[in-house]
Design a protein around this nucleic acid. Sequence first.
DNA 1: ACCTGAACACCGTTCAAGT
DNA 2: ACCTGAACACCGTTCAAGT
Lengths: 206, 206
Amino acid sequence: MAIQRSKIVAEALDLLDAEGIDGLTMRRLAQRLQIQAPSLYWHFPSKQALLDGMSDALMESVARDVDSAASYEERVRQVSHEIRNALLSRRDGAQVFSGTYVSTENVLRVGESLISALRDGGLDPRSASWGAFSLLYYILGFTIEEQGLAALDETAFHKQQEAFRQMAQAQFSNAFAAAGELFESDPEDRFTFGIDRLIAGLRPSE
Amino acid sequence: MAIQRSKIVAEALDLLDAEGIDGLTMRRLAQRLQIQAPSLYWHFPSKQALLDGMSDALMESVARDVDSAASYEERVRQVSHEIRNALLSRRDGAQVFSGTYVSTENVLRVGESLISALRDGGLDPRSASWGAFSLLYYILGFTIEEQGLAALDETAFHKQQEAFRQMAQAQFSNAFAAAGELFESDPEDRFTFGIDRLIAGLRPSE
DNA sequence: ACCTGAACACCGTTCAAGT
DNA sequence: ACCTGAACACCGTTCAAGT
């Protein structure tokens, strides 16, 4: 029996999770699937196409059942957290996703859910679509950074933090004061803070 | 005379601009500098260290003279645009920057300028530092996406757009309506929209 | 102090050939 | 229709050796 596309994508996500984005190679993936690397090119025209498939799969469970009774702001908040959680579900998920520009059903459903919630909140079509993408950019930027820092080992993380404090102390008092807020805070709290500020900023004024 | 670190970074940025992030290899960089690839490892311990140096250099001119007479919101807006312009100044600049976690003078000055402006606006230390990073995440996410789309050639861009409209039309009415707003708008306008919404959302309420 | 030659252990991708 | 073997044109990095 031949290998299915979906099986390859699932295995690729497992490999990503195990080895990170640098360890995700066509050869290693093939090995896991017990085929030879060139065989993958019968199923996908390129590695990029495989990454596109992985991005689509990452969004599979997002915005499936949005609580239609909730306020529009609550719906935006809910979907935003779902997106972040989906990206976090695999190592380097945000980086994989940000390198792709897919218009698949899963990805468009996510976009649609944000835009339609904002429309329900009274935003005009332009503000709703630009607003939805603003939210996505924030979510992506935040999560890329979060996963990138998570990739550092204990020692590297500590060195990073030390360099920051050292440099900031000498010249940048506010940045120095910020060090604690950044390094010792829960990422979830920081994420929520930014999302809520952005949602508030998108509120129609009248 | 030996080659200086700064010369290598400058040449690396030129190579990035000419070939994009995939074309930025140690061998090609060495060739431009008329040395052999392994020689680069006397100046930088790894390619990552070189990328860190490039990120620092990208921020060199940002937040140099912030208009101290301007309102805090105006200052945040100004620095945000400067960051975006700095990232845009080199092909794939945002992607290079987002992969690095440098605490150098240039990068910290940028952070400091945002945090201190927000502090002047009346935000508490935690909100100011989290807010500054929220702005940075948005800027990074936006600019990565912008430069990624710019990397597509005309045909690929058109195909992308078609796939989006096709899929959206069938099932996602709001996303379909958003297509025009996205594909035909000035990125500068969309960037400004999001930044201004976020700045508004960060405004202290009382 | 700064640079080279040669090599190691990999990559993504192509393509003729097999079943 | 699906897969393999062999190869191409690269990578980042190490290291002994040169000046």
